[in-house]
Amino acid sequence: MKYRHVVFIVILILVIDQTLKFWIKTHMFMQQEFIIFPNWFRIHFIENEGMAYGLKFGGDFGKILLTTFRLVAVVAGFFYMKKLIREKYSTGLLICGSLILAGAAGNLIDSMFYGLIFNDSIGYEVAKFMPPGGGYGSFLHGRVVDMLYFPIYEGYLPSWIPFKGGDYFVFFRPVFNIADAAISVGVITILLFQKRFFARHSAARQEKAASHAEI
């Protein structure tokens, strides 16, 4: 796998992620919802100021810190991917790394620029792109757009379940976006197949070292 393949994967995920977010911002108001498949898949528009899946981090200063960290991580990520390619790590690992990098970059774009280029989605008002009065925030203060909602199960849990019995429960509750999904798929796949990914690289290095020793 070559570096241009990594760049292609990142750009492809970014285009899909940002196209969907742009459509959501310019066609839906906050909390509006479209049911795609009854009972388990909806497009539900929300925004969050923090991390993936609506998690938050430390107010205004935390927002700047988180966005700055994302920026540094994305830049460092491209250099790290070059290193992995140069050292001939497995294609599977490089694809997973590309997904994680693309997801981080997707949410970074929201955090850096959406406050500048969109106004607020208040009440039943749909946000406008590049509004005359300016956006709802400043640089690094944009909110991340989320829309994918999979409430596969909604209802009250049986009373016999310890601690949570009788409580109203939704699975899967978090609303997320394409960038979040790319990060999750990349991380989970690495965790599941880490032995295979790294064992192949270790074996290749040992084989290369042995061949040099014979010479």
Rank of each mutant, 00 (worst) to 15 (best):
M1C: 14
M1Q: 00
K2T: 12
Y3F: 08
H5G: 02
F8C: 05
L14K: 04
L14N: 11
V15K: 03
I16D: 01
Q18T: 06
T19F: 13
L20E: 10
K25G: 01
K25T: 12
Q31S: 10
Q32V: 05
F34Y: 06
F34G: 01
I36A: 12
N39T: 07
W40C: 03
F41D: 03
I43W: 07
H44A: 02
E47A: 05
E47W: 03
N48C: 10
G50W: 10
M51R: 08
M51V: 15
A52H: 00
A52N: 08
Y53R: 13
K56N: 11
K56E: 05
K56F: 15
F57G: 02
G59P: 11
D60W: 03
F61K: 02
G62N: 13
K63V: 04
K63H: 14
L65M: 03
L66H: 00
F69S: 13
R70F: 11
L71C: 12
L71V: 15
A73S: 14
V75E: 14
G77H: 03
M81P: 00
M81L: 15
M81K: 04
K82S: 12
K83A: 07
L84I: 10
E87Y: 03
K88D: 14
Y89E: 01
T91D: 10
T91N: 15
G92H: 01
I95K: 01
I95D: 11
I95S: 00
S98F: 07
L99I: 00
L99R: 00
L101C: 13
L101M: 10
A102H: 04
A102T: 12
G103D: 05
G106C: 13
L108N: 08
G115T: 01
G115P: 14
I117L: 05
D120W: 11
I122D: 09
G123A: 12
E125H: 13
M130H: 13
P131Y: 00
P131Q: 09
P132H: 05
P132Q: 07
G135P: 00
Y136N: 04
G137N: 13
S138E: 09
F139Y: 04
L140Q: 09
H141M: 12
D146K: 15
P151S: 08
P151C: 10
I152T: 11
Y153E: 04
E154T: 05
G155R: 05
Y156N: 11
L157V: 06
S159M: 09
I161R: 15
G166Y: 08
F172S: 08
R173Q: 09
F176W: 09
A179M: 09
I183C: 06
I183H: 00
S184H: 00
V187W: 00
L192N: 01
K195W: 11
K195I: 13
K195Y: 03
F197Q: 00
F198A: 03
A199G: 12
A199R: 05
H201R: 10
H201C: 07
A204N: 15
A204W: 04
A204Y: 08
R205H: 01
Q206V: 03
Q206I: 15
A213G: 10
